[in-house]
Design a protein around this nucleic acid. Sequence first.
DNA 1: AATAATTATTCCATATATGGAAATATCTAT
DNA 2: ATAGATATTTCCATATATGGAATAATTATT
Lengths: 302, 302
Amino acid sequence: MSPDLNAMALFVKVVEHKSFTAASRRLGVPISTVSRKVSELEKTLGVRLLERSTRHLRLTELGQAYYAYCHRGLEEIETGTLMLNERQAEISGTLRLSVPPGLADRLIVPLVSAFQAAYPAVTVRILITERNVDFIQDAVDLALRVGELKDSSLVARPLIRYRHVLVGAPVYLDRFGAPGHPRDLPGHRMITFGGWFDAVSLKLINNGRMHTVHVEGVLALNDYTGIQNVTEAGQGIAEIPSIICGEALRDGRLVEVMPAWRFPSTTLSAVYPSNRNLSRIVRLFKDFCIEHIDALSPFVDI
Amino acid sequence: MSPDLNAMALFVKVVEHKSFTAASRRLGVPISTVSRKVSELEKTLGVRLLERSTRHLRLTELGQAYYAYCHRGLEEIETGTLMLNERQAEISGTLRLSVPPGLADRLIVPLVSAFQAAYPAVTVRILITERNVDFIQDAVDLALRVGELKDSSLVARPLIRYRHVLVGAPVYLDRFGAPGHPRDLPGHRMITFGGWFDAVSLKLINNGRMHTVHVEGVLALNDYTGIQNVTEAGQGIAEIPSIICGEALRDGRLVEVMPAWRFPSTTLSAVYPSNRNLSRIVRLFKDFCIEHIDALSPFVDI
DNA sequence: AATAATTATTCCATATATGGAAATATCTAT
DNA sequence: ATAGATATTTCCATATATGGAATAATTATT
């Protein structure tokens, strides 16, 4: 079986520090671990690498030769790790994103913040629009879109699936009672995202059965943060994406209404014209989203 | 914290095999382990190295660069490991040892056998002598000696500490009874190692008190294996090194006599003229003894 | 020569990693 | 369009590794 590379690295450090104790201190690894790991390495290799008394250390002949190879190997690997860190720091340019309204604050901004923490030399422009942008005309690198992609000339990489939640503040529900069926909703004070002129359709599913209800909001705005603030204040019931209201739900500032009736899940995707000719920054951001979006949106609640 | 080098090696193998499953099969590592380790590596580095669906794998830009460094580093380390194996195979020449009588069969021969298994091209000459050899005159590379080194111009590297045990066969002890005090021993049939003309002195210790008893063997020979065979046959009581009789004790063929009275421990050392100018083979054998003598003599019983 | 300090090894209660199985997702064949 | 095959991810009962403390040994100091 191949030797434990971590043990080999410890061996190299012990040699370089001329002492188990010094290597242990320097690396922040317990001395018992260093001792055991190096002993196990020798056993695995079938060779004594170090001759040691409690106060002295000497490389054996084979140990010296093995150390030389391993030292060079580790230098290469450590250079690669350093390169990763430096590459992340050196990447610069501008990233132009189009994002739908409502998600910027709680999702996109944290994501972009984290991305810029990793790549400080990148500037980002975010266009919050409900339109499906024209990538060339609008000079957009990458769009974040909710729902299915209808334009087959574009590429969509799904990032996260989530659902919306019907929520209300405890104070509101105490006063007005909680609805038991979607048809009760029009009798409540609704706070909605859209609905500039018309009523808003809510499609709720329970045990495979869907019920669509039209509600007219007493307040409508296309900003989920604003909607959440108002809902927490007890002004009504609202439909809010779980990734935005999850923390309020956890903390009890909001309560899920009619939990048996659920909105269908939806997908947020990164959309771009083609995988070919994608600039480095765009590709990096896309990869970054894939890697980090779960951590940055812990309230998916599918 | 620094990345897990074993995880990095798995990443390199996944890239080279273009598949988690292929790398898992090739390395004999469970696929769940490979998957987790590579994911953890990415998390530790803060970088996505691979973009993957269940059927396709693609290195990210940073992943490609990192892979190149790691691949070179691993090649270096693997060359070092191979070098160790080859070095062990390529070493040739003759090793001349001087060993005291009594230990050759059960200890030195297994040790030398194991050494020659590791270094097949080395020939070994063993001089069994009770004399303190002259390294130059007798052309001895290394001597194995029991007890303290009296010649300060030589170097002694202790290999193992052990003690002698007073033993008898159950059939003998049933018939003649077990002695309860060292002074009882002259009344028993003793089988001794030395004592060509004179009685043999046995120095036994109990609770820090030493008692010296002189016994005349009914049989004397300077071969512990022979002594053990005769003792097992029920012909008497003998003093035998633990590293020789330990297996017989474990198996019940011999029983320790007066276990509260113990011989002082002694040391077997590798003795050689100087650390400087020690040939490679001698140094290798010495290192080999240090590494392996414990495993080859499990009945130290200090 | 005796004692104190320091270093490495070993033990075992506890923490963490593992790997088989289940779940999930994608691609291929029909 | 659907079913089957294949690949990766995730879960959790179990196996193994860890690290603090004790032990052993060597070297330095008094």
